[in-house]
Nucleic acid binder design. Sequence first.
RNA 1: GGGCCGGUAGCUCAGUCUGGUCAGAGCAUCGGACUUUUAAUCCGAGUGUCCAGGGUUCGAAUCCCUGCCGGCCCA
Length: 494
Amino acid sequence: MPEPESELIKGRLAKLDRLRARGIDPYPPRYRRSHTSQQAMDLFASIDTPDAQEPRTEPVSVGGRVTIFRGMGKATFADLVDGSGRIQLLFRRNNLPETYDLLDDLDIGDWLGATGPVFRTRAGEVTVEVLEFTVLSKSIRPLPEKWHGLTDLESRYRQRYLDLISNEGSRGIAVLRSRLVKAIRRFMDERGFIEVETPTLVPVAAGANARPFATHHNALDQGLFLRIAHELYLKRLIVGGLEKVFEIGKVFRNEGIDLMHNPEFTMLESYEAFADYNDVMGMVEALVYELARDVLGSPVVKYGGHEIDFSPPWPRLDLCSQIGERSGIDILELTDIESLKTAMKSAGVDVSQQRSWGGLVDKLISTRVEPHLIQPSFLVDYPVEMSPLAKKRSDNPRLVERFEGFVAGGEICNAFTELNDPVDQRARFEEQEALRVQFEDEETDRLDEDYLVAMEHGMPPTGGLGIGIDRLVMLLSAQTSIREVVLFPQLRSR
RNA sequence: GGGCCGGUAGCUCAGUCUGGUCAGAGCAUCGGACUUUUAAUCCGAGUGUCCAGGGUUCGAAUCCCUGCCGGCCCA
């Protein structure tokens, strides 16, 4: 992004030239540090016994970014920040007769290596008394302000590195997210699942109701889509006899961006042969409970003014009864679009955007039921019309063995006993295709012939699950915007 | 897609209602003093596409229109 160089940058470039003129490489290829800042602090703590007189360690070498200078004439203090924390440096002219004046050409933001013993200053701060220092990387742009840091949301998202430098909370979320994903892998591994990778570029974007991103492969001269779900490929693996599989990966949906949605987001999907949706519910409870304890040390999390307790068991709430209780509408009675629409209108639900029966029910759930589901809970047994990949209940073929998990009024997962009847599956896909023709502005699932062929070879009874990782991170880090838990959220490019 | 709010120095912000010493403050930067500071302190200085483009006006950061970018709410 070419732009006129500010005076600040010109000044720093001049310092760069002066350093080079003195034979200093401002960007040396390596620096061996003996201690991180935390290790240096720990080393000092280990010799800082009650009867020690002015304790002082052997010299250590630390490296990091200078975030502030406090110049005192012939002595200068600086804060050095590295991945483990922060440690203060003290430069004294006495100790650095040849190099003290190099400090004139250093700036806040420069990376520095420094060697010297660790001691405690008069003011009580554990500090490296610098006997030798090395410029590791000269920065030529100024950092955000030291006290307020970087608060402008747009800058924080577009230049996340600055956000990470100046906002501890942002670093914390990145770390929490990594710990959470790691804990998921451990949980799944302990239960005997294997982690797999399935295609991101797919010829048919099936497995969910979502608009895909389209692209093109030049060598094959073939249109491709970015996947909208992992589902159908993982179930092919179930057909192949991999009985417990999971995948953690990005999926892409070409839809709006808001507090809960980023066009690319991370999903955990798992499939387990010989399990049904009741087994999967148990697994979800156990997983999320364990994640909260693992990442936060407690199953209780504060979120949006609520105290949410992930301890199992979570209530199983019958979907149709919940809709009835919250809206007075019996969706099993109102089987045609018009009567349902009329009932919803008179219940005060805006139905101007919905056209299909499933779409109307979905709207009813999201406006009337979801907002009440604050504590973790499951809605179970969905209408077949809105669940083309789930197995019908044997006692009521209008419903499927499907559940969704809700926390703080938002959906966190979707799961079912998988439909493994290839004839039924084909019919359901065809229904979806017909719906798309009938309601062309509504999203439906797509028929994936190659998947049907797989299922026709025989898929065992299977329980499947999809969990939005971003939303879990939001819950456990008390964030209300998905942009806070995605390091580089999608923004309009400038 | 609709509504509301915002965009001023590298950063954090005031100034906009009520047009005219309104180009401002703090931090950062630059010059000077200071060998145990920690939002160091003290003295001095410079810093701008006021988001962009039109319009109104003697005069616009300020009022009007259009657009761009972002945020929130609704769909």
